[in-house]
Simulated assay, not measured.
Amino acid sequence: MAGLIIKNLSKTFLINDKKVKALNDINLSIENESFTAIVGKSGCGKTTLLRIICGLEKQSTGQLEFTHCNENDHNSKRVGIVFQEPRLMPWLTVEQNMAFPMAENKNNSEIHEIVHKYLSMLGLEKFKDAYPSQISGGMAQRVSLGRTLCYDPEIILMDEPFGALDAFNRRKLQNEFINIFREYKKTIIFVTHDVEEAVYLGQNVVIVDEGSIIKQISVPLDYYRDITSPEFLTLREEILNSILFKN
């Protein structure tokens, strides 16, 4: 498994000939086999940080260091990402979408075994032959998650993956993902603007505002968490107040 150390990381975009700083001097240590939630208002830089970690963007300054990786394995899979939209290929079935990341590296027997393990885990076996247009949004997000799990990354990045779902499907997928984390002990970095979701899922919560980390909070609660408990509500209020009254 892998962890991550981020040192003095900044990102500046050039928009209409003006420099806009999206991230400012980010320093963050993510332990391997941990669940970190990054929370903040829309536009605070959360997604930009995630895109830099997975290599979709390049930082302007600073460093990222992956820890606990096998540096001698050039085929090492370090990072997988689940976006807010499922981003499934509409011409492939559920099963084929999940199998796609393994096409070049595994034989058909291995692919079949891995895909069906996650189809079963995510309750998608009856829909394996369906196309994305034939399943619900919640199911499509499960397929997206299953596709990432089939890829078997050391670090899983999640960019508000449940944000577009109704409350019932959101909580169901949150609990399923907690099960996956507890069983497979992946390193997870989960971006959200939902403070309750951050406290419900994360072992650690990193609060970002205007491109900077303003606070980090440890969540000393066991899974599954009672969102009505005094301890949960106190943590939620602490995070909300950190964002609302940061000055």
Rank of each mutant, 00 (worst) to 15 (best):
228 T>Q: 15
88 L>N: 06
144 S>Q: 08
240 L>H: 11
85 E>T: 02
11 K>A: 06
17 D>P: 03
111 I>L: 12
199 V>L: 09
88 L>P: 02
227 I>N: 15
166 D>F: 12
129 D>P: 06
91 W>H: 13
188 I>R: 09
147 R>V: 04
206 V>H: 07
48 T>Q: 06
202 G>R: 05
25 D>V: 01
196 E>V: 12
14 L>Q: 01
109 S>F: 13
108 N>L: 15
216 Q>D: 01
234 T>Q: 15
31 E>A: 14
225 R>D: 06
115 V>R: 06
108 N>D: 05
47 T>W: 03
11 K>C: 04
116 H>C: 07
93 T>W: 11
168 F>S: 00
22 A>V: 00
108 N>G: 13
19 K>Q: 13
211 G>W: 11
177 F>P: 04
178 I>D: 08
179 N>Q: 14
4 L>F: 03
225 R>Y: 11
70 N>F: 09
232 F>S: 08
131 Y>N: 04
61 T>P: 01
192 T>F: 08
112 H>N: 14
131 Y>L: 13
120 S>E: 15
124 L>T: 00
118 Y>A: 12
102 M>I: 01
134 Q>A: 13
102 M>W: 09
7 K>N: 13
19 K>A: 11
42 S>Y: 00
41 K>L: 14
134 Q>W: 12
200 Y>R: 13
219 V>W: 08
163 G>R: 08
22 A>P: 04
4 L>C: 02
162 F>P: 05
229 S>E: 03
171 R>D: 11
154 E>H: 08
155 I>M: 10
209 D>T: 00
1 M>E: 03
172 K>Q: 13
89 M>V: 10
1 M>H: 11
54 C>L: 01
161 P>D: 00
199 V>K: 05
113 E>R: 15
108 N>Y: 02
52 I>E: 04
11 K>G: 02
232 F>Q: 10
130 A>Q: 11
181 F>H: 14
236 R>L: 12
79 V>P: 06
147 R>W: 11
